[in-house]
């Protein structure tokens, strides 16, 4: 093989860089995020339920929010009828965050873990946040 030394060196560097993620965290997994539902509004509720059930919200809250924003803003329809037949007012700030007023301990926990940064918060305000 020509330039065997350089080839082996290059391979070693390549493997070192591309397995960095594994050995940097010492082979352990990051702890599972635990969003907290300990808020005044939720604690007041007799039966703690969101606009849809937990499994649905966990998997599809982003889809629901996108559908909500198009319904409210583009179609002018600000009432959502959920699977239980209840009428919900469509609003991120005033409906979702009314109960989930602890954005840092709820929304952000999973988003930070998953390294997503939804741009909702560039405009929508966390009513309980002290900063913009």
């Amino acid at each position: 093989m020509y330039d065997a030394g350089k080839v082996y060196l290059g391979l070693a560097i390549f493997i070192g860089i591309f397995t960095f993620g594994f050995y940097y965290s010492h082979g352990t997994a990051a702890p599972q995020p635990k969003p907290s539902i300990d808020t005044p509004e939720i604690n007041k509720m007799a039966k703690k339920q969101c606009v849809e059930d937990t499994e649905f919200m966990r998997s599809s809250h982003m889809k629901l929010l996108v559908e909500w924003r198009d319904e409210a803003l583009r179609n002018g329809n600000r009432t959502f009828v959920n699977s239980r037949g209840e009428k919900i007012k469509i609003s991120l700030q005033n409906t979702c965050l009314k109960c989930h007023s602890n954005k840092k301990d709820f929304c952000d926990r999973c988003h930070t873990y998953a390294m997503t940064a939804p741009y909702c918060w560039d405009c929508h305000i966390d009513p309980n946040g002290g900063k913009l």
Binding site: Q93, I125, G130, L132
Partner: peptide
């Protein structure tokens, strides 16, 4: 726009823009 807005003065029921 948030560089010219203070949190205390905001209408919390309505978003800002970006």
């Amino acid at each position: 726009p948030r560089t010219a807005l203070k949190f205390e003065d905001l209408n919390k029921k309505f978003p800002t823009r970006y």
